[in-house]
């Protein structure tokens, strides 16, 4: 499995996700700069967390129009797997690779903690090593993670099994108490139509090695490895 991570000037999780990709694959992850107009041949492209260009305006809005994102869109169209985490998810929605948008948390505050999630679909390159309905814990760290979309889009996402992860309470129940940011339908992560693009607010790379206190994010990376080799 060969991978690339996209680096904007304000990205700050590129190393973290590269470590996870490199540890499962044994291959060095290529770091692509935001001004790059081409990428090496890779199987997975990660758009990492951070603050792309400062995100003082709408998160990810500028990044979505950067040179490198044109290449990411081309590769995504060819079926290359693309995962956007946190700011990466915001950028993928702004770039039109995923529907909907991520707005300010309902609390109006940044929130960093491990959240409970339910795995809603295991029929994808990203989630095959989870079990359907599995209750996992993965950290979030964001101020704008409140997923919104119009009704038609939501109907399609739900009807087509494109919700990847949903926030739950500590008992695994999808409810308001377990929703950290006000996301519609407790949506924490979604796929595109072909389930080759995944955007998620939680950081699987922060629940990867035993010293993180929790390795529930690891299956996402091993899923990619197995489906791509």
């Amino acid at each position: 499995m060969k991978s690339a991570v996209i680096v904007f000037p304000g990205s700050n999780c590129e190393r973290d996700i590269a470590v996870a990709l490199e540890q499962v694959s044994g291959h060095k992850t290529f770091h692509a700069w935001h001004r790059d107009t081409d990428l090496p041949e890779v199987d997975v492209i990660a758009v990492p967390g951070g603050f792309s260009y400062g995100d003082y305006l709408r998160c990810g809005a500028m990044a979505a129009n950067s040179p490198v994102m044109r290449v990411v869109k081309e590769r995504a169209a060819k079926g290359v797997k693309v995962i956007g985490v946190c700011n990466g998810f915001q950028i993928l929605t702004e770039a039109g690779l995923l529907p909907g948008a991520l707005i300010r948390n309902q609390s109006l505050k940044y929130i960093c903690k491990t959240v409970d999630l339910k795995v809603e679909n295991t029929d994808s390159a990203f989630t095959r090593n989870y079990t359907l309905g599995q209750h996992i814990g993965i950290p979030v760290g964001h101020g704008e993670g409140n997923y919104v979309a119009d009704e038609e889009t939501l109907k399609r996402l739900e009807g087509e099994g494109r919700v990847a992860f949903r926030y739950t309470d500590a008992d695994g129940v999808v409810n308001a108490a377990g929703n950290p940011n006000g996301a519609t339908n407790n949506i924490a992560g979604i796929f595109n139509e072909t389930r080759t693009v995944l955007g998620m607010m939680p950081h699987p790379e922060r629940a990867f090695d035993p010293q993180h206190g929790n390795t529930d994010g690891r299956a996402l990376f091993t899923s990619l490895l197995e489906s791509l080799s």
Partner: peptide, 14 residues
């Protein structure tokens, strides 16, 4: 207080 701080970026926080 501390849930408003990113305490994990870098993925080296034990």
């Amino acid at each position: 207080i501390w849930e408003q701080y990113d305490s994990q970026v870098g993925a080296d926080t034990v």
